[in-house]
Design a protein around this nucleic acid. Structure first.
Lengths: 145, 145, 145, 145
DNA sequence: TTTT
DNA sequence: TTTT
């Protein structure tokens, strides 16, 4: 009875941070920039950039670990999730993230201009388009999110 | 070169708050709930609800003012925007909002069960589907956002 | 490296036609109407209706069989597929269909106004939102599509 | 009350065919390929390609005329439209097209590998992301579609 | 912090 | 704060 869907095409702000949790679960985090331009009253072109916090789990996170680096252009399909946490002063703070369910690499291999180690050829065609499979709820509710 | 698109179907959490700014500009704010369910390991069904802060400008805000009330189911198409502000302790805080560019009413008229005043018939068929027209940047950069 | 995604909200044109194939595979077909309105030069309001051929497989088809009937409003997420066939004169013909991967019921139960048999209460909450799981390719390539 | 939205990322099949109609109205047509891969039972990788007939009007068609050529990767947002026509034997035939409302160029300039004339630098930043403005219905209903 |  |  409801839909929560996000579609982004943008550039990766920095090499993804990848963590390997228990049970062979991988998580990757990175930010993705999208930008909009318009011409202001004075004729000047103004560009505003929006930064999105992307979170990727499991198999898709492994793809990110192997193939995504700073500067890459990505297509991301996912959903919005706002989580709360307590800051050092005990105030409730909110962070909005995009949980990626699908991801496509739009930067041709070997053209990454980012800061990370140089990308070799993709080991595997699958890497260019991977969907997050549905995971059983039995492991789902062990995870810290 | 980039895309920032959100598609939501959910329920309006409270009657929209509508403000009329200078130059005949209207803004409406409300929250929209989307929910996801899954069955946990113990067989219990778990539902998580996500609340989205929706912002609507100009002509579309007038439609919201006239036709949207608490409890209504809406389709919203828009983009993500995170703005920062300073809290009372001088800390930078962030709020993520969805700027609606298109909105469709999915609750048949006369069936709103929310807390607001009872809805009459729509005055105007247009109300059921209104797109935000493109506004010239000349007025755009007068606005406080 | 590519994306083929369709999002529709519209009304079901007739009770779905459901077939049960071998190996416990179910397929459902129905048409879905979306409409657009605009005001013509002469001030007359013109509405054009677009009919989409929807195809639903497996578990999602069983949901359709049980819960979808003529007149219902649905949200459908899927992809476009054009298949060719030969007509009686031996000419190649093309039919474009939407393969649904996700489907949400937007008509509250018990409010269906269509021509089919009256809908009872949903047997199961899951029915309101079901995703097509990924099926292994081993059965995939047995299917006639 | 309804939504008809298509999102495609794919490659342009041939240099667009551009026509200039009366009243300074431009139309561009081209096909766009999207593809899906899966591994068959025998372990072989199978790729299926879907060809979409894209139609672009007015300002966006001028952008296509200037900047889009065979082989380019594009993001397209639009809607599905099926039109009928009579073939030489008097049979009713149907063609499904995607009317593009928004288009983003995903191939960096100067990297087009297609068959058309070589692309020079974009004359204009706008070219990379142009939205179809809403046109008044008064001209709308003069058009042959 | 990205990209054009 | 919504809805089923």
């Amino acid at each position: 009875m409801s839909v929560n869907k996000v579609i982004l095409i943008g550039n990766v702000g920095q090499d993804p941070e990848v963590r390997h949790l228990d049970k062979d679960v991988t998580v990757a985090n990175f930010s993705l920039a999208t930008s909009e331009s318009y011409t202001a009253k004075n004729g000047e072109k103004v560009t505003t950039t929006e930064w999105h916090n992307i979170v990727v789990w499991r198999g898709l996170a492994k793809v990110v670990e192997q193939y995504v680096s700073k500067g890459d252009k990505l297509y991301i399909e996912g959903r919005i999730r706002t989580r709360s946490w307590d800051d050092k002063d005990g105030n409730k703070r909110y962070t909005t993230e995009i949980y990626a369910d699908n991801l496509e690499m739009l930067t041709p291999r070997g053209q990454s201009t980012g800061g990370g180690q140089q990308m070799s050829e993709p080991k595997n065609q699958q890497a260019e388009s991977v969907n997050e499979p549905d995971f059983s709820s039995s492991e789902e509710d062990d995870l810290p999110f």
